[in-house]
Amino acid sequence: MNIAFDFWAVFEQWPLLLTGVAWTLGLTSLSGIFGLSLGVVMAWARLEAVRPNHDLHRKKISRVLDILDKLILFYVELIRNTPFIVQLFFIFFGLPALGLRLSAEVASVLAMVINLSAYSCEIVRAGLEATPPAQVQAGESLGLKPVQIFKHVVLPPALFKVWPALVSQIIIVMLGSAVCGQISTEELSYSANLIQSRNFRAFESFITAAFIYLLLSIAIRWLLNKVGRQVIFKGMVSHD
Protein backbone atom coordinates (compact mmCIF):
# COMPACT_ATOMS: atom_id res chain seq x y z
CA MET A 1 0.00 0.00 0.00
CA ASN A 2 1.70 3.15 -1.13
CA ILE A 3 0.47 6.40 0.30
CA ALA A 4 0.92 9.70 -1.46
CA PHE A 5 -0.45 12.76 0.26
CA ASP A 6 -2.06 15.36 -1.91
CA PHE A 7 -2.98 18.31 0.25
CA TRP A 8 -3.33 20.53 -2.80
CA ALA A 9 -6.47 18.60 -3.77
CA VAL A 10 -7.99 19.88 -0.51
CA PHE A 11 -6.52 23.38 -0.50
CA GLU A 12 -7.74 24.15 -4.00
CA GLN A 13 -11.26 23.86 -2.56
CA TRP A 14 -10.51 26.79 -0.23
CA PRO A 15 -13.77 28.66 -1.00
CA LEU A 16 -15.66 25.66 0.40
CA LEU A 17 -13.44 25.54 3.47
CA LEU A 18 -13.88 29.27 3.97
CA THR A 19 -17.67 28.98 3.76
CA GLY A 20 -17.43 26.17 6.31
CA VAL A 21 -15.34 28.27 8.70
CA ALA A 22 -17.76 31.19 8.31
CA TRP A 23 -20.76 29.00 9.14
CA THR A 24 -19.00 27.37 12.08
CA LEU A 25 -18.08 30.77 13.50
CA GLY A 26 -21.56 32.16 12.79
CA LEU A 27 -23.30 29.23 14.48
CA THR A 28 -20.95 29.48 17.44
CA SER A 29 -21.35 33.22 17.97
CA LEU A 30 -25.14 33.14 17.68
CA SER A 31 -25.49 30.18 20.01
CA GLY A 32 -22.87 31.70 22.34
CA ILE A 33 -24.82 34.94 22.72
CA PHE A 34 -28.30 33.47 23.02
CA GLY A 35 -27.29 30.30 24.87
CA LEU A 36 -25.36 32.22 27.48
CA SER A 37 -28.12 34.79 27.98
CA LEU A 38 -30.71 32.06 28.40
CA GLY A 39 -28.38 30.24 30.76
CA VAL A 40 -27.96 33.34 32.94
CA VAL A 41 -31.72 33.92 33.10
CA MET A 42 -32.35 30.31 34.10
CA ALA A 43 -29.57 30.37 36.67
CA TRP A 44 -31.09 33.52 38.17
CA ALA A 45 -34.54 31.91 38.37
CA ARG A 46 -33.14 28.83 40.06
CA LEU A 47 -31.23 30.92 42.58
CA GLU A 48 -34.28 33.06 43.43
CA ALA A 49 -36.31 29.91 44.04
CA VAL A 50 -33.97 28.58 46.71
CA ARG A 51 -33.21 31.90 48.41
CA PRO A 52 -34.78 32.05 51.91
CA ASN A 53 -37.71 34.39 51.67
CA HIS A 54 -38.52 36.61 54.64
CA ASP A 55 -40.90 38.85 52.79
CA LEU A 56 -44.49 37.54 53.26
CA HIS A 57 -45.82 39.51 50.29
CA ARG A 58 -43.60 37.53 47.99
CA LYS A 59 -45.07 34.16 48.98
CA LYS A 60 -47.11 33.90 45.80
CA ILE A 61 -44.15 34.79 43.61
CA SER A 62 -42.05 32.24 45.39
CA ARG A 63 -44.56 29.50 44.55
CA VAL A 64 -44.33 30.43 40.87
CA LEU A 65 -40.55 30.45 41.14
CA ASP A 66 -40.70 27.01 42.74
CA ILE A 67 -42.53 25.57 39.75
CA LEU A 68 -40.18 27.40 37.38
CA ASP A 69 -37.22 25.94 39.27
CA LYS A 70 -38.55 22.38 38.78
CA LEU A 71 -39.18 23.03 35.07
CA ILE A 72 -35.68 24.41 34.55
CA LEU A 73 -34.18 21.51 36.46
CA PHE A 74 -36.06 19.10 34.20
CA TYR A 75 -34.91 20.97 31.09
CA VAL A 76 -31.29 21.06 32.22
CA GLU A 77 -31.22 17.36 33.09
CA LEU A 78 -32.99 16.43 29.85
CA ILE A 79 -30.52 18.34 27.70
CA ARG A 80 -27.40 17.41 29.63
CA ASN A 81 -28.26 13.72 29.60
CA THR A 82 -29.11 13.24 25.93
CA PRO A 83 -26.68 13.33 22.98
CA PHE A 84 -26.46 16.55 21.00
CA ILE A 85 -27.02 14.76 17.70
CA VAL A 86 -30.29 13.30 18.97
CA GLN A 87 -31.48 16.78 20.02
CA LEU A 88 -30.49 18.09 16.58
CA PHE A 89 -32.25 15.28 14.69
CA PHE A 90 -35.34 15.72 16.83
CA ILE A 91 -35.53 19.41 15.95
CA PHE A 92 -34.86 18.92 12.25
CA PHE A 93 -36.54 15.60 11.44
CA GLY A 94 -38.94 15.30 14.36
CA LEU A 95 -40.55 18.72 14.80
CA PRO A 96 -42.00 18.84 11.23
CA ALA A 97 -44.34 16.06 12.36
CA LEU A 98 -45.72 18.59 14.89
CA GLY A 99 -46.01 21.20 12.16
CA LEU A 100 -42.85 23.14 13.02
CA ARG A 101 -40.55 23.17 10.00
CA LEU A 102 -37.19 24.87 10.52
CA SER A 103 -34.43 25.20 7.94
CA ALA A 104 -31.22 23.24 8.60
CA GLU A 105 -29.41 26.41 9.65
CA VAL A 106 -32.10 27.60 12.07
CA ALA A 107 -32.44 24.08 13.48
CA SER A 108 -28.66 23.98 14.06
CA VAL A 109 -28.61 27.31 15.89
CA LEU A 110 -31.63 26.32 17.97
CA ALA A 111 -30.10 23.00 18.95
CA MET A 112 -26.83 24.68 19.91
CA VAL A 113 -28.59 27.42 21.90
CA ILE A 114 -30.62 24.82 23.80
CA ASN A 115 -27.53 22.74 24.47
CA LEU A 116 -25.34 25.62 25.61
CA SER A 117 -28.07 27.19 27.75
CA ALA A 118 -28.49 24.00 29.77
CA TYR A 119 -24.79 23.64 30.48
CA SER A 120 -24.15 27.33 31.07
CA CYS A 121 -27.13 27.53 33.46
CA GLU A 122 -25.37 25.14 35.81
CA ILE A 123 -21.98 26.82 35.40
CA VAL A 124 -23.39 30.29 36.07
CA ARG A 125 -25.44 29.00 39.01
CA ALA A 126 -22.25 27.70 40.61
CA GLY A 127 -20.80 31.19 40.27
CA LEU A 128 -23.93 32.84 41.69
CA GLU A 129 -24.05 30.52 44.68
CA ALA A 130 -20.48 31.41 45.51
CA THR A 131 -21.48 35.02 46.10
CA PRO A 132 -21.01 35.92 49.80
CA PRO A 133 -24.37 36.93 51.42
CA ALA A 134 -22.69 40.07 52.73
CA GLN A 135 -22.34 41.30 49.19
CA VAL A 136 -26.11 41.14 48.67
CA GLN A 137 -26.73 42.78 52.04
CA ALA A 138 -24.35 45.56 51.10
CA GLY A 139 -26.44 46.17 48.01
CA GLU A 140 -29.66 46.13 50.04
CA SER A 141 -28.29 48.61 52.53
CA LEU A 142 -27.63 50.96 49.63
CA GLY A 143 -31.33 50.76 48.78
CA LEU A 144 -30.88 48.90 45.49
CA LYS A 145 -33.81 46.91 44.09
CA PRO A 146 -33.39 43.10 43.76
CA VAL A 147 -32.97 43.35 39.97
CA GLN A 148 -30.34 46.04 40.40
CA ILE A 149 -28.53 43.99 43.00
CA PHE A 150 -28.47 41.00 40.65
CA LYS A 151 -27.34 43.03 37.68
CA HIS A 152 -24.69 45.15 39.32
CA VAL A 153 -23.61 43.38 42.51
CA VAL A 154 -24.08 39.64 42.06
CA LEU A 155 -23.82 38.77 38.38
CA PRO A 156 -20.53 40.44 37.30
CA PRO A 157 -18.30 38.83 39.97
CA ALA A 158 -20.14 35.54 39.54
CA LEU A 159 -19.52 35.52 35.78
CA PHE A 160 -15.95 36.57 36.41
CA LYS A 161 -15.41 33.51 38.60
CA VAL A 162 -16.79 31.02 36.07
CA TRP A 163 -15.64 32.76 32.88
CA PRO A 164 -12.92 30.17 32.01
CA ALA A 165 -15.49 27.36 32.40
CA LEU A 166 -17.97 29.22 30.20
CA VAL A 167 -15.33 29.79 27.52
CA SER A 168 -14.53 26.07 27.54
CA GLN A 169 -18.21 25.25 27.22
CA ILE A 170 -18.57 27.57 24.23
CA ILE A 171 -15.62 25.84 22.58
CA ILE A 172 -17.17 22.44 23.28
CA VAL A 173 -20.35 23.65 21.60
CA MET A 174 -18.36 24.92 18.62
CA LEU A 175 -16.67 21.54 18.24
CA GLY A 176 -20.07 19.90 18.65
CA SER A 177 -21.38 21.96 15.74
CA ALA A 178 -19.45 19.52 13.54
CA VAL A 179 -22.48 17.22 13.58
CA CYS A 180 -24.74 19.96 12.18
CA GLY A 181 -23.35 18.95 8.79
CA GLN A 182 -25.49 15.82 9.14
CA ILE A 183 -28.60 17.88 8.50
CA SER A 184 -26.97 19.72 5.57
CA THR A 185 -25.82 22.84 7.41
CA GLU A 186 -22.72 23.87 5.49
CA GLU A 187 -20.30 24.19 8.40
CA LEU A 188 -16.64 23.18 8.42
CA SER A 189 -16.98 19.42 8.79
CA TYR A 190 -19.67 19.44 6.09
CA SER A 191 -17.13 21.11 3.77
CA ALA A 192 -14.46 18.59 4.71
CA ASN A 193 -16.89 15.75 4.08
CA LEU A 194 -18.00 17.20 0.76
CA ILE A 195 -14.41 17.69 -0.42
CA GLN A 196 -13.60 14.16 0.71
CA SER A 197 -16.59 12.73 -1.16
CA ARG A 198 -15.46 14.51 -4.34
CA ASN A 199 -11.76 13.74 -4.43
CA PHE A 200 -11.56 10.79 -2.01
CA ARG A 201 -8.75 12.49 -0.09
CA ALA A 202 -10.22 11.59 3.28
CA PHE A 203 -7.01 11.79 5.27
CA GLU A 204 -6.00 15.19 3.89
CA SER A 205 -9.52 16.63 4.18
CA PHE A 206 -10.05 15.63 7.77
CA ILE A 207 -6.58 16.49 9.00
CA THR A 208 -7.02 19.92 7.40
CA ALA A 209 -10.40 20.32 9.08
CA ALA A 210 -8.96 19.15 12.40
CA PHE A 211 -6.17 21.69 12.13
CA ILE A 212 -8.63 24.50 11.34
CA TYR A 213 -10.80 23.48 14.33
CA LEU A 214 -7.68 23.56 16.50
CA LEU A 215 -6.80 27.06 15.31
CA LEU A 216 -10.39 28.25 15.79
CA SER A 217 -10.51 26.87 19.33
CA ILE A 218 -7.24 28.50 20.29
CA ALA A 219 -8.30 31.80 18.70
CA ILE A 220 -11.73 31.82 20.38
CA ARG A 221 -10.29 30.98 23.79
CA TRP A 222 -7.67 33.70 23.45
CA LEU A 223 -10.20 36.25 22.22
CA LEU A 224 -12.85 35.53 24.86
CA ASN A 225 -10.29 35.56 27.67
CA LYS A 226 -8.94 38.88 26.42
CA VAL A 227 -12.40 40.39 25.98
CA GLY A 228 -13.34 39.10 29.43
CA ARG A 229 -10.29 40.58 31.11
CA GLN A 230 -10.19 43.91 29.32
CA VAL A 231 -13.82 44.72 28.61
CA ILE A 232 -16.41 42.77 30.57
CA PHE A 233 -14.59 42.34 33.87
CA LYS A 234 -12.39 45.40 33.66
CA GLY A 235 -10.71 46.17 36.99
CA MET A 236 -11.76 42.96 38.73
CA VAL A 237 -9.16 40.83 40.47
CA SER A 238 -9.31 37.18 41.34
CA HIS A 239 -9.31 36.46 45.08
CA ASP A 240 -8.65 32.78 44.69
Partner: peptide
Protein backbone atom coordinates in the same frame (compact mmCIF):
# COMPACT_ATOMS: atom_id res chain seq x y z
CA UNK B 1 -28.83 20.70 -3.22
CA UNK B 2 -28.99 19.75 0.45
CA UNK B 3 -26.50 16.97 1.10
CA UNK B 4 -27.02 14.39 3.82
CA UNK B 5 -24.79 11.77 5.32
CA UNK B 6 -26.76 8.65 4.36
CA UNK B 7 -29.81 7.56 2.45
CA UNK B 8 -32.01 7.39 5.55
CA UNK B 9 -31.40 11.08 6.31
CA UNK B 10 -31.83 12.05 2.65
CA UNK B 11 -35.22 10.37 2.52
CA UNK B 12 -36.18 11.55 6.02
CA UNK B 13 -35.57 15.18 4.97
CA UNK B 14 -37.97 14.74 2.04
CA UNK B 15 -40.59 12.88 4.07
CA UNK B 16 -40.44 15.58 6.79
CA UNK B 17 -40.99 18.24 4.12
CA UNK B 18 -37.60 19.86 4.69
Amino acid sequence: IKRFEDNSSTVAAFVAGQ
